[in-house]
Design a protein around this nucleic acid. Structure first.
Length: 806
RNA sequence: GCCGGAGUGACGGAAUAGGCAGACGUGCAGCACUCAAAAUGCUGUGUCCUCAGUGGCGUGUGGGUUCGAGUCCCACCUCCGGCACCA
C-alpha cells in the first residue's frame, strides 16, 4: 500500500480536534444547520450500523460546512437502560462503571472513524446533570395533568421475577431466557400522549421531508378510528357501552361480546348456568400469553347466560365472553355482527349463532362476512340506503334516543413510562401517609439514583430495597413518606436530548429557550428505521409539549428525516446474536477508516439494506490508492497549447462536481462515488499522456474538494502535500461552470422499428430535420430500410431517431 | 389478513418527465511485469446461434398501451419490512 493510513488518520483526527474545526457557536452571519445522528446506546463496541450512520452524518456535516453553513453536529450517549443492568446481573460489574468504560471505548472508536462532532456538547443520559432535567420535565408534565398514575397490566417474567418493557418481549417470550411472559396488574406511571393524538396525526402531513413509510407507520400506530359509542341494556339489569365503526349494521347484531376483563362480566355470570365454565375461561384467558390467545383453533368464548337488548329493534341477543375482544381498546365490549364482520362470522359459525346480512353483497359474492359498501337490507328504517347514509341516519337516531353519539377511538395508548428497574432516572414523586401522592419540589431536585450493589430480581425495583432512598419526609406535612421506586423509560431521555444539545451545560434550566430558538429545528436527523414509531413519536410529543409551555421554538423537532438500511451478511441482519459481525475496528487497522467510509457510501442506496462484502472495502481502498497516486505523483508535464483533450478533462471534472453535488443533496451517495471513480480513471489516462500542469492541478483540486467529506483523511493529507496552507475542511465546496459542463456533441442512436441499428456523434443543437436527414443517410440504416416503405420517423433530437418501416 | 417496499449478470448495484439495459465496484479468465508470488497495469466477461454478424433473445410471470417499456396500466408469483382479532 502506498500510503500509511494509520499515520495519516491519526494525524488529521488530532488536527481537527485541537483546532476545534467542528466547534459550533451561535452565529447570525451564517445560515445554521443542525445535523444529528440518533445518539447511541454505549454498548462498548462500534458496529457497522454505527459506522454507516456516522459516515452519512459526518459527510453531511463536512459538506454543509464547506457550503458555508454554521453546522451543529453533537454526539452523546443513551446511557441508561436495561442492557447495563442485565450485564450487572450477569457479570457483577456495576452499571455505572460498565457504562462509563463503554463510553470511553466507543468515544475512541468513533474518533477513529474520523467522524467529527462538537464534543464540548457531549451529554450522557445517566449523568445527573442530564437526568435531573428528566425529573424537571416529569414535574412539568405532572402539573399540566399529563403525567398520572394508574393500574395497568404489565409484562411479567415469572422466572426473572421482574417486569419487562414491551420491547423486551419478543413473540410473547422474555428476551433474556425465553420464558412465556405473563400479564400482571400493577400501579404504573403514564404520560398522556393520547391527548396529543390528533395533533401528532395531523401534523404528520407537514413532515413532507420524512419517508412516507415512517409517516404511514406513525399513522397506523396512532390508529384514529371514527365511529359511534352507544349503550346496550342487559335483560337482567345493567348496561354496557360498545364502540363500532359500522353503526349501519346494528340491525344485524346477533350477539354481544365482552372482554374477559370487562367489569360487568362478574355480575353477568353470577348464578348463571354457565358460571363455572365462564370463571374457568376468565382465569385461563388472564394466564394466556398473547400468542396463545391468538393461537390456531380459532376464536374461543363462553356464553354468560345473559342477554342484551338490541336498541334498534328490541331483540334479545346472547352475551358472550371472548378474548378476541380486547379490554384495552374501545369500551372492551362489542356488538357482534357476523354478517359484516369476519371475526364475528368465525365466532358465530363456531358457536351456532344466527347470522343476518344487513348489507347486500354483490351477486357473485361467495365469501363469508361482507365488509364492503352496499345497499342496507333487513334493517327497518335503514333499508335501501348505502352505507354512508345509513351510518348518518342511525347516528342521528341514537342521538335522538340519547343512547349514543359519534366518538373517535385511537389505537395509541398512553405512554407507560414506569420501569421496575434500577438503571434509569428516578421518578420524582413521593407517597405520603397523609397527603398521598406528592411531587418532589423542584428545589429538591435532583433525586439522585443511589448506589446499589444487589440487582438480583425480587419482583420490584431494586431501589425499593434501599431504605435511605425510599424513606423520606413529605414536603407538605413533614410526615413520613416513601419515594417512588420506579425509574423512567429511557425513551423519556431520548425524547428531548436533542434540545439539551443546544445548551448542554446549563445548570439552571433544562435549556435557555434562546439556544433552541437559534438551532432548532433539526435540519437533518439520521438513524435506523427501527425507531420509526416509538422514539420518533415520543420525541414529537414531548417537543409539542415543550412548545406549548414556551420552551421549544418549534412543534416538530425534525424537519428532514433519513432512515438508513441495515447491514446484512448471508441474508441476515449483521448482529452479535446472529454471530455474523464484521468488526469495523479490524478494518480501520487493515484498510483504513477512509476506505471503510467510502465502502459504506458506495455499497448501495443508503435507505436500503445492504449486503456486506469485505472485498468491497478492498475496492474502495484501491480507488484511494489511485487517488493517492494522482495527488502525490510528480507528473511529467509538457508545455504546449491547450487542446480539446485538456478542455475535456476539465469538463469531466466539472460534470463530476455537478453530479456529486446533486447526488449528495438527494442522499444518493452510492452514485456519487462512481462519478468520482470515473473522474479518477479519466484523470489517470490524462496524466499518462503529456498533460498540462495547470489543467491537471485544477482537476485534482476539484477531486480532493469533493472527497473531503467522504474520505477526509486522505483528501486532507494530499491537499496539504500539494502546498495548500489552509485546511481542506474549511474550503468552499466547488461549483461547476455551466459553460464547461455543456456537451458539444452527443451520441445519437438510430433505431429501425425500435431496434438500435446505428449510433452517430451529432451536434447537441441539431434540428429535427437535420437529425432525420442524417439518420436516413447512414449506410447501415439504408441497408435496413432499402426495399421497405418508411411509414414514420420519430425524432427526439439530439438523442434518438426511430425509423418505422413496413 | 391489512399496509408499505422490492424483484435487473456469478455478486453489490447503475439506468425512471418512457428513448444505447448492465455504469461503477467485486469476482472470474487471459496477458504484461516478475526467477516466482503479491501488488500494479492492460484486455475480456448477460445469453444463444460451433466462427463470423447490419444476427436472435434478455430486467420475476402472463397480458396490454406505445414508433419505442426495466420504467406506464391490468392480473399473478416470490421476497423483505411494519401492523397484526383495534370492533
Amino acid at each position: 500500500m502506498s500510503y500509511d493510513h494509520r499515520a495519516i488518520e491519526a494525524k488529521w483526527q488530532d488536527r481537527w480536534a485541537t483546532e476545534k474545526v467542528f466547534h459550533a457557536a451561535e452565529d447570525g452571519s451564517k445560515p445554521k444547520f443542525y445535523n444529528l445522528c440518533m445518539y447511541p446506546y454505549p454498548s462498548g463496541v462500534l458496529h457497522q450500523g454505527h459506522v454507516r450512520n456516522y459516515t452519512f452524518g459526518d459527510l453531511l456535516t463536512r459538506y454543509k460546512i464547506m457550503q458555508g453553513y454554521n453546522v451543529l453536529s453533537p454526539m452523546g450517549w443513551d446511557s441508561f437502560g436495561l442492557p447495563a443492568e442485565n450485564a450487572a446481573i450477569d457479570t457483577g460489574i456495576h452499571p455505572k462503571l460498565n457504562t462509563e468504560n463503554q463510553i470511553t471505548t466507543m468515544t475512541r472508536q468513533i474518533k477513529q472513524l474520523g467522524a467529527m462532532y462538537d464534543w464540548d456538547r457531549e451529554l450522557a443520559s445517566h449523568h445527573v446533570d442530564f437526568y435531573r432535567w428528566d425529573q424537571w420535565l416529569f414535574l412539568e408534565l405532572y402539573e399540566h395533568g399529563l403525567a398520572y398514575k394508574a393500574e395497568a397490566l404489565v409484562n411479567w417474567c415469572p422466572k426473572d421475577q421482574t417486569v419487562l418493557a414491551n420491547e423486551q418481549v419478543i413473540d410473547g417470550l422474555c428476551e433474556r431466557d425465553g420464558t412465556p411472559v405473563e400479564k400482571k396488574q400493577l400501579s404504573q406511571w403514564f404520560f398522556r400522549i393520547t391527548e396529543f393524538a390528533d395533533r401528532l396525526l395531523d401534523s404528520l402531513d407537514n413532515l413532507t421531508e420524512w419517508p412516507d413509510r415512517v409517516r404511514t407507520m406513525q399513522r397506523n400506530w396512532i390508529g384514529r378510528s371514527e365511529g359511534v359509542t352507544f349503550t346496550i341494556e342487559v335483560e337482567r339489569g345493567g348496561s354496557f357501552d360498545v364502540f363500532t365503526t359500522r353503526p349501519d349494521t346494528t340491525f344485524g347484531m346477533t350477539f354481544c361480546v365482552l372482554a374477559p376483563e370487562h367489569p360487568l362480566v362478574e355480575s353477568l355470570i353470577t348464578d348463571s348456568e354457565t358460571e363455572t365454565e365462564a370463571r374457568e375461561y376468565i382465569v385461563a384467558a388472564g394466564r394466556a400469553s398473547d400468542i396463545e390467545r391468538m393461537a390456531e383453533g380459532g376464536k374461543t368464548g363462553v356464553f354468560t347466560g345473559s342477554f342484551a337488548i338490541n336498541p334498534v329493534n328490541g331483540v334479545g341477543v346472547p352475551i358472550y365472553i371472548a378474548d378476541y375482544v380486547l379490554m384495552g381498546y374501545g369500551t372492551g365490549a362489542i356488538m357482534a355482527v357476523p354478517g359484516q364482520d369476519q371475526r364475528d362470522w368465525e365466532f358465530a359459525t363456531k358457536y351456532g349463532i344466527d347470522i343476518i346480512r344487513t348489507v347486500q353483497p354483490p351477486d357473485d359474492w361467495d365469501g363469508e362476512a361482507y365488509v364492503g359498501d352496499g345497499i342496507t337490507i333487513n334493517s327497518g328504517f335503514l333499508d335501501g340506503l348505502p352505507m354512508e347514509e345509513a351510518k348518518n341516519r342511525i347516528v342521528d337516531w341514537l342521538k335522538e334516543e340519547e343512547i349514543g353519539e359519534a366518538t373517535v377511538q385511537y389505537r395509541l395508548h398512553d405512554w407507560l413510562i414506569s420501569r421496575q428497574r434500577y438503571w434509569g432516572c428516578p421518578i420524582p414523586m413521593l407517597n405520603c401517609d397523609e397527603c398521598g401522592l406528592v411531587p418532589v419540589p423542584r428545589e429538591d431536585l435532583p433525586v439522585l439514583l443511589p448506589h446499589v450493589e444487589d440487582y438480583t430480581p425480587k419482583g420490584r425495583s431494586p431501589l425499593a430495597a434501599v431504605e435511605d432512598f425510599v424513606n423520606t419526609t413529605c414536603p407538605n406535612c413533614d410526615g413520613p413518606a416513601q419515594r417512588e421506586t420506579d425509574t423512567m423509560d429511557t425513551f423519556v431521555d431520548s425524547s428531548w436530548y436533542f434540545l439539551r444539545y443546544t445548551d448542554a451545560h446549563n445548570d439552571d434550566a433544562i435549556f435557555d429557550p434562546s439556544k433552541p430558538a437559534y438551532w432548532m429545528p433539526i435540519d437533518q436527523y439520521i438513524g435506523g428505521v427501527e425507531h420509526a414509531v416509538l422514539h420518533l413519536l415520543y420525541a414529537r410529543f414531548i417537543t409539542m409539549f415543550l412548545f406549548d409551555i414556551g420552551l421549544s421554538p418549534v412543534e416538530e423537532p425534525f424537519t428532514r428525516l433519513f432512515t438508513q438500511g441495515m447491514i446484512t451478511l448471508d441474508g441476515a441482519k449483521m448482529s452479535k446474536s446472529a454471530g455474523n459481525v464484521v468488526d469495523p475496528l479490524g478494518l480501520f487497522d487493515s484498510h483504513g477508516a477512509d476506505a471503510l467510509r467510502l465502502y459504506h457510501l458506495f455499497m448501495g442506496p443508503p435507505t436500503d439494506d445492504a449486503a456486506w462484502n469485505t472485498n468491497g472495502v478492498e475496492g474502495t481502498r484501491r480507488f484511494l490508492e489511485r487517488v493517492w497516486k494522482l495527488g502525490s505523483a510528480e507528473g511529467v508535464f509538457v508545455v504546449r497549447e491547450e487542446t480539446d483533450t485538456d478542455r475535456e478533462i476539465l469538463a469531466v471534472a466539472h460534470r463530476t462536481v455537478r453530479k456529486v453535488t446533486e447526488d449528495i443533496d438527494r442522499f444518493r451517495f452510492n452514485t456519487a462515488i462512481p462519478a468520482l471513480m470515473i473522474l479518477a480513471n479519466e484523470l489517470a489516462d490524462y496524466a499518462s499522456d503529456e498533460p498540462l500542469q495547470e489543467t491537471y492541478d485544477e482537476a485534482v483540486r476539484l477531486m480532493l474538494l469533493m472527497l473531503s467529506p467522504m474520505a477526509p483523511h486522505v483528501a486532507h493529507e494530499l491537499w496539504e502535500m500539494r502546498g495548500n496552507s489552509e485546511m481542506l475542511a474549511l474550503q468552499d465546496w466547488p461549483t461547476w461552470d455551466e459553460q464547461l459542463v455543456r456537451e458539444e456533441t452527443v451520441t445519437m442512436i438510430v433505431q429501425v422499428n425500435g431496434k438500435v441499428r446505428d449510433r452517430v456523434e451529432v451536434a447537441t443543437d441539431i434540428t429535427a430535420e437535420e437529425a432525420e436527414e442524417h439518420a436516413l443517410s447512414l449506410d447501415k440504416i439504408r441497408g435496413w430500410i432499402d426495399g421497405h416503405e418508411v411509414r414514420k420517423v420519430v425524432v427526439r433530437q439530439p438523442n434518438l431517431v426511430n425509423i418505422v418501416i413496413g
